[in-house]
Amino acid sequence: MSKAVSALGGVSHSGFVDVAEAGLRGMITLRGDLASAKMKKAVKAATGTAVPAARRIELNGDKGAAWMSPDELLILVPYEEAVATVEALEKALAGEHHLVADVSDARSVFTVKGAKASEALMKLCPVDFETLAEGEIRRTRAAQVAAAFWKSGADEFTLVSFRSVAGYVMGLLEVSARKGGEVFPA
C-alpha cells in the first residue's frame, strides 16, 4: 500500500534548465555532539559516510550526511529506510545527549539540472555560486522561504525546502528557468 506521496507528485518543467520535484527522500534531523566517537559511529552505520565538516555534505550513493549547524546534521537515506534509520540512530546514540527526528515528510526535494543550473538559482538565492565549493551544502533562502542546496552532479543541484511551500518553490524554479532567462547567454 503506497499511501505516501510527495507534495507535488513529481511535477517537472523544462526551460533553459530542467527543474523537477524529486519525490520522497528519507531525511533525519540529528542533533548532538558531532565530534563524539558514538556520533561518528552512528553516522557511519547509517550512511556509510563520515561526519561531514562544517558546511559540507558527504554523499554515498543514495545516502548521505549534511552539516546543518555546529550541533546538527541532516541524514539522507531512501524514504523507505527512514523509520529504521531513526531507530538505529537512537540505539547507537543511547546514553549520549542527542535528538533524532524523522523529517522526511516535512521536506520537499527538487533537482535543477542543466549546464546553466546555477543561473536559475542565482535569481533566487543570495549566494555566490562562483565560490561555492564542491561538496558544500548551502543553507540560505530561495526568494522568501528557507532552502538548502548542494551540487549533486556535474550539472545538477539538489534543493530542499519545507513541504508546505513546495508549490511556491516550484513556481520560483519554473519562472527562473524559463527559456530566454539565461543570465549569461552564450
Binding site: A54, R55, S69, P70, P126, R138, R139, T140, R141
Partner: peptide, 11 residues
C-alpha cells in the same frame, strides 16, 4: 561565526 558564511542581511 558558527558556520563561516558571510551572510547577507536578508538571511
Amino acid at each position: 561565526p558558527c558556520c563561516g558564511v558571510k551572510a547577507d542581511e536578508t538571511e
